[in-house]
Simulated scan of single mutants.
Amino acid sequence: MNRITAYVAGSAAALPEQTAAPAVETRAPRPAPVVRDLRERSGHSPHGLVFGPHDLVVVTGLPGSGKSTLMRRAVRGVGVDSQDTRDRWDDRAPRFLPYAVYRPLVRLAHYAGLRRALRAGGGVVVHDCGTQAWVRDWLARAARRRGGALHLLLLDVTPSAALAGQRDRGRAVSRYAFLRHRRAAARLLRAVERGELPRGCASAVLLDRDAADVLRRIDFTP
C-alpha cells in the first residue's frame, strides 16, 4: 500500500498523512481533503513543500499571478509549464503571425509533453490557469493509476497584481480571457476556502504573493 504524504519542509507543521489503495482492493472512503492556508503570514511561511514520489501537483491562479516564476525557482524535478511551450513556439513563429493562429498547436504540444511526463511515473508539477476542469480530472485519474495523489497549489493574488504581473512580463491576455480566468479562479478559491476541493484532489495549499515569494522548494520524496 502506498503512503501518500505532503508536508512542509523546514517546519514543525505537517499536512496529515493520507493512505490510498487501488479501488479494486478496498471501497473504504478516502480521507477528507486537506487545506493548508499559508496566506497573510508576512513572509513567515514555509520555504518548502514536499509531496509523495508519485504525486502530481497543479499550480493554479490568475494569468500574471506568478505561476511560471514560482515553478522556475522552486520546482525540483519535473515541471510542465504551458508558458514554456508557448515561448518555444513564439521563438519559431514568424513575427507577423498572431498567436491566436497557432494557439491550438501550442496547446496540443503542451498536453503531449504533459502526457509524456505522466508516463514516466515520477512526481510532476503542472502549470494550470484553472479554467480547464477536465485537465484536473485527467490528472486526478493519472495520479490514482500511478498510486499517487493530486495536490493543488493556488496562488491568491488580486486582479490588479495579476495585471501588473502581465505588464512586467510584457505579455497580456485579452480582457475577455482575463475576465473568464478571474471568474474561474474566484469560484475555485471560494470552494477551497470552504474545504470543497475539485474532484480527485487530496489537498490544497493557498499562497498569497508573500508566501509564494518565500517558497524555494517544491519537491517529491524518493
Rank of each mutant, 00 (worst) to 15 (best):
P53E: 12
G77M: 03
D87N: 13
G66E: 04
G48D: 04
V59G: 13
P63S: 14
H54Y: 10
G79R: 08
G79C: 03
R86D: 00
D84T: 01
A74R: 03
R73W: 01
T69D: 06
R72G: 15
F51L: 12
G52S: 13
R76C: 08
S68I: 08
T85H: 09
G66A: 05
S68R: 13
D84H: 00
T69S: 14
S68T: 15
S65T: 05
V57P: 13
S65I: 05
K67W: 08
D84P: 00
D81E: 10
L62V: 03
F51S: 07
S68E: 07
R76I: 08
R76N: 09
R73S: 11
T60C: 12
T60R: 06
R76F: 01
V75Y: 08
S65A: 15
R72E: 15
G61C: 11
L70H: 11
D55Q: 03
L49S: 08
L62C: 04
D84F: 00
G66R: 06
R73C: 04
G48F: 03
G48M: 02
G61T: 08
T85Q: 14
L70V: 10
P63C: 14
K67Q: 10
V50M: 06
G61E: 10
F51W: 14
L70P: 11
T60K: 09
P63F: 12
D84C: 00
Q83Y: 00
A74E: 09
F51D: 14
R73M: 09
T60A: 15
T85C: 13
G61L: 13
S68V: 07
V75I: 15
R73P: 02
G66S: 04
L62E: 05
H54N: 14
R72N: 15
L49A: 07
Q83E: 14
G52Y: 01
G52K: 02
R72K: 15
M71C: 14
L49P: 07
G61D: 11
G66C: 05
G61M: 10
M71N: 11
